[in-house]
Nucleic acid binder design. Structure first.
Lengths: 236, 236
DNA sequence: AAACTTAGTGTAATTATTACACAAACCCAA
DNA sequence: TTGGGTTTGTGTAATAATTACACTAAGTTT
């Protein structure tokens, strides 16, 4: 491996969502300061400066892997944040000084997002990520830099997208019930739907295929199981 | 005025659309090389490096003004392009060498877009824009850098947006006919609609207010005039 | 066997979408 | 002044989508 040269002015940040059958969660890291074992109590989105010789998309994937261990995740660009003061809060600067060659350099960041099923991926934080944790979107505290704003933008991007693409095939188990799917839509859109209308509409869409199986071992009438038919749509 | 320091790694590009009552047009500049009066025959979107102390949005407005004279245009971010090779074509490099301190530096560009009525704005190209011209979107030639790709992305952004926001209040005259409005929608969406259905739908929307006036001096039945009611919606 | 819990279903009213054709209003030219 | 040219403006029927709404069925637990 040759060493890569770093672009001091451009970073990527990743907003990775998951679903715990109830609520949306987002992946955050706990920053550790330099070589010390001191954990910075402020959480942040996984992100870092790009290399000079990689695309933004590649950078997002690499940085996500380096910080959290998540590998081979499909990432989609959301928005770019470039306020000149976005990294200049004192606390953020203190932290940057411990890890960056030019902590004072202006950094524009390109946000990427993805949806994953956290059961299918293991986290193994490293680099300056002392820890990587799933936090309920509704419980997200004040984050470093402008990361709350980035999260908000990724969320509204997600809300828009769910009308276009049948999201969720990544967020749910392979076989799922329509109640689970409905809860997912409700979590993303922060709304509630009528069960009958939701079912009618979603089954009309041909992405969701009924299986001849039922839930087992639940203390009530078992629900039928469904799966996504990925062949019915294509990423652009 | 103090001199501004330039960020060598980040630029903005502006995709400005207008409408000639028939087709969509986009604003391009003809690049002039350095101090020479030689016109680079390749056209490009108006764009340039950002200053260290301005936001991306501010940079987009400033650059647009500097290159084309368009002032005070509402600009909206579209997408960010960061391919490591996006400015390395020989011809683009030749031109960059004539105007940039570090022509070889990697540049990530943030694209912005707007819709304007070209009748209401004057072009006065300056800086390295030898000329600024409106080109029909369907006639756009091969542009410098990755600007064809950027234009495509801005166009699809526009198509998406027209479903959400009642665009067009900027693109049409203050008073317009429903046929003009329909042609605008058809130009943007590259589609054709049934006149009766279009009218019914658009009039249902409450943004479009009938006036008690008719076209004058046309050699056929004069059409009724309408205006937009801007109070009926708000930019986010 | 009764209580508990969630699944699964139908209908009527309203609204939106699609497809389709002809008379009315104005100008112009003969 | 009349007829031709051109674009405007309008209605309806068929189909599809949306909304609102409540009870029985199928399991488990006690």
């Amino acid at each position: 491996m040759f060493p890569h040269s770093v672009n001091p002015n451009v970073s990527v940040d990743c907003v990775i969502f998951s679903f715990n059958n109830h609520e949306l969660e987002v992946l955050l890291i706990e920053r550790s300061a330099g070589n010390t074992d001191k954990v910075d109590e402020v959480k942040a989105l996984p992100g870092n400066l790009i290399y000079e010789d990689e695309t933004l998309n590649t950078a997002a994937g690499r940085v996500l892997t380096e910080l959290t261990g998540l590998d081979n995740i499909y990432l989609e660009q959301v928005f770019t944040f470039g306020d000149p003061d976005r990294i200049s809060k004192q606390h953020d600067q203190d932290w940057l000084r411990s890890i960056r060659a030019h902590p004072e350099a202006r950094v524009i960041t390109v946000a990427y997002t993805s949806l994953i099923n956290k059961e299918r991926h293991n986290l193994s934080p490293s680099s300056f990520a002392r820890n990587a944790v799933w936090i309920k979107v509704k419980d997200v505290p004040q984050l470093g830099f402008d990361h709350n704003e980035i999260l908000e933008k990724a969320l509204s991007h997600l809300k828009q997208k769910i009308y276009i693409e049948p999201l969720g095939y990544e967020l749910l188990p392979d076989r799922f019930t329509l109640a689970q799917l409905q809860k997912l839509y409700e979590a993303i859109l922060d709304d509630n739907f009528d069960k009958r209308n939701f079912r009618r509409k979603i089954l009309r869409s041909s992405f969701i295929i009924p299986l001849n199986e039922k839930q087992q071992g639940v203390a009530h009438k078992p629900a039928g199981l469904y799966r996504f038919d990925k062949s019915q749509f294509h990423r652009i």
